[in-house]
Design a protein around this nucleic acid. Structure first.
Lengths: 188, 188
DNA sequence: ACCTGAACACCGTTCAAGT
DNA sequence: ACCTGAACACCGTTCAAGT
């Protein structure tokens, strides 16, 4: 994850400026914010952006890797506060809220749990699958979760719930409702 | 739905050429196919495309309105073949398959069930909600579906299942599995 | 009434020249 | 080693001129 060789001082400075500018731009204009605009905000040439982040995905991941890590930590925090089954649901709720609130985070998480996703997002994909795996394992041990569920399935379904909730107003109440429907099933 | 005043012969010809070219281009390059390319394929000026279809959404809807209608008809066909609860699931499966196979159809159906969607897609939104409503109503009457479910909820959840399945390989087996998890719930 | 296509604005990407 | 920004290609959208 960390650099093999330390960056030159000006390179490191530009890298950080780009990250800050990218986070701002993504927040303002969504995940399709103009890369040229991001370079301008950061006060660097467009070529410099490409040097540091060869693809938009790479920039997206770098801009949100800390949010991913925060979500991973939340999994264990929640696990200490609630019984396994409830903990998983609560964590999925927070994942959904996060991916809806922070534009771009959803795309990143989506490609992270995509079958055959690129190596660039494998790192945060593994991180999320591990976090989900701990909650899934505990709930299955407790007997409140289907034993045939893989962590990646749960993450994909949460992504789907986010999408469905966004079609409604995307607010917490709808996320809770659709998550409940998923956990309890559509039968009466 | 139909034109108030008949189009001039050349206008009608261009309209149909544009629709054919759009369907081809969307099939080849996805929902973001170049509008300029579509105009070129159709052998018309780009201004003509904008005259007939002021927005990309409008073109998308026009190109796939027949597919939407086919899905609506399938709802009633399936209702004659299967008991209500199974019919709904089978129909949702076909909706998911269709939205994954035909790129652009998913976007269209998504915006059709979006809260506060534009008037342009209200027509096919109403059509789909009516079709879903008939299956939902029958299943609720039968007692195999939660009584608090609205047709639009079911359509949004199906959209979410499509998204989740696409993150896997997007093939039928995954759609069936994720639909089953939704209907039966995540509990053992 | 409708069509054409040039013109404009904007964006992504590359790369020669510079430090 | 890294940065700059001009240059190129491409796309969406508008609109004056044409039929």
């Amino acid at each position: 994850m960390t650099q093999v060789r330390p960056m030159r001082a000006d390179a490191r400075r530009n890298y950080e400026r780009l990250l800050k500018a990218a986070a701002e731009a993504f927040a303002e204009h969504g995940e399709n914010a103009s890369l040229d605009d991001i370079a301008k905000r950061a006060g660097v040439g467009s070529g410099t952006l490409y040097r540091h982040f060869p693809t938009r995905q790479a920039l997206l991941e770098a801009a949100y890797v800390d949010r991913i890590e925060a979500l991973g930590l939340r999994a264990d925090e929640i696990a200490r506060e609630l019984p396994p089954g409830e903990a998983l649901i609560e964590w999925l709720y927070e994942v959904c809220v996060g991916t809806i609130e922070v534009r771009g985070l959803k795309t990143l998480l989506g490609s992270a749990v995509t079958d055959g996703s690129s190596a660039a997002v494998t790192a945060c994909g593994t991180f999320m699958k591990d976090a989900a795996g701990r909650l899934v394992g505990a709930a299955q041990k407790e007997g409140t979760l289907r034993p045939d569920l893989e962590p990646v399935d749960v993450l994909r379904l949460a992504h789907g719930i986010s999408t469905a909730s966004e079609l409604a107003d995307g607010r917490g109440a709808h996320i809770r409702r659709y998550l409940l429907l998923l956990t309890e099933g559509l039968r009466p």
